[in-house]
């Protein structure tokens, strides 16, 4: 498989204070790093999943990858070209090859646009007026398991799950090379969720499309993904082949995350690793290992010295002084 996307040392910042305020408060920077020093690769036809703490920068990373957020430093190479350096015109061509499925399904649909128009809107945006919109809308709705009668509905007339399927249909319109899906199955029952994931898998098998999936649903990660990264405070703390991570996670945060997954079958049987303390603020990153304030296995060293990534081979690494 050849490389489709390669992200190197990416940093994405948000301004959280005016420069004046931060000047008055001396040392404090007006920026936070929502994504810091993130590197990863996605091969053609591969599924890469990103899991992690809520607020850890997953959506920010996704938005930067699709070219919707300015980056502070680092590079995003897509088939050899650096997205962060692209002129607008080239960026437009890039965006045609990737599709984004948004985290908030109803909110990302325009309230006054009917479903049929919404899912064929990408044709309009990219000046592909030769397509038969009616026919295409039917085809796309059918792909995501909604009948053609949904064409005339407005977003507020859809259930949460139906709105999400409309989002999938829209993402499929332009036959993208990479689909970036932010929580593609949140709000779906397990059966419809299975349908959507089988659909994405089928598209991958048939068209070789790559998937970059962000999710909190650990149960699906195990089934759909080739590689997984775990994010904490804007950084990857562990990254590797999904199967290995689920069998033998190395980073304490990954361990805590995987052990927290509630399941129907073994209620109460899980040995849960509770995290102490509060989620640190991006404005005041902890010293040393940024996870040390909550880590059940932290030692003295962790509070002062930042760990470097340990390579376990097979493109598997974790950033911890005392990996499990």
């Amino acid at each position: 498989m050849s490389q489709l996307l390669e992200v190197n040392n990416l940093r994405v910042q948000f301004r959280v204070k005016s420069s004046m305020a931060s000047w008055l408060q001396k040392s404090e920077s007006p920026f936070i790093d929502a994504v810091r020093d993130v590197s990863f690769k996605i091969k053609e036809g591969e599924t890469f999943t990103l899991v992690g703490e809520s607020g850890s920068g997953k959506s920010t990373l996704a938005n930067a990858v699709v070219g919707l957020l300015p980056t502070a430093s680092g590079s995003i190479n897509f088939m050899g070209d650096d997205v962060t350096q692209m002129p607008d015109k080239q960026l437009m061509a890039y965006r045609k090859q990737i599709s984004m499925m948004w985290q908030n399904p109803t909110g990302s649909l325009s309230p006054r646009m009917q479903v049929g128009d919404a899912i064929t809107e990408p044709y309009k945006i990219h000046n592909l007026s030769d397509r038969d919109k009616q026919q295409e809308a039917k085809r796309l709705l059918n792909l995501v398991g909604l009948s053609a009668r949904f064409q005339d509905r407005y977003p507020h007339q859809l259930s949460g799950g139906q709105a999400r399927r409309v989002g999938v249909a829209r993402a499929l319109a332009l036959n993208p090379k990479l689909i970036v899906a932010d929580e593609p199955t949140a709000g779906l029952d397990v059966s419809v969720q299975g349908e959507i994931l089988n659909l994405l898998n089928r598209l991958q098998d048939d068209l070789g499309v790559s998937l970059f999936v962000i999710t909190h649903n650990l149960n699906i990660v195990r089934h759909i993904s080739d590689r997984t990264a775990i994010m904490y405070l804007g950084r990857f703390v562990e990254e590797g082949p999904t199967d290995d991570i689920f069998v033998n996670p190395h980073h304490p945060y990954t361990l805590a995350l995987l052990s927290a997954n509630p399941e129907v079958t073994n209620v109460g049987a899980l040995e849960r690793i509770a995290l102490k303390g509060e989620v640190p603020s991006l404005m005041h990153r902890p010293s040393g290992c940024e996870f040390h304030t909550r880590c059940p296995f932290a030692q003295e060293l962790c509070a002062t010295v930042a760990p470097v990534g340990i390579d376990f081979g097979f493109e598997y690494s974790a950033t911890c002084h005392y990996p499990r």
Binding site: E183, H216, L258, A260, N261, P262, L275
Partner: peptide, 8 residues
């Protein structure tokens, strides 16, 4: 729905 497993 929008929360990670530890927060959930």
């Amino acid at each position: 729905t929008a929360l990670d497993a530890t927060l959930e």
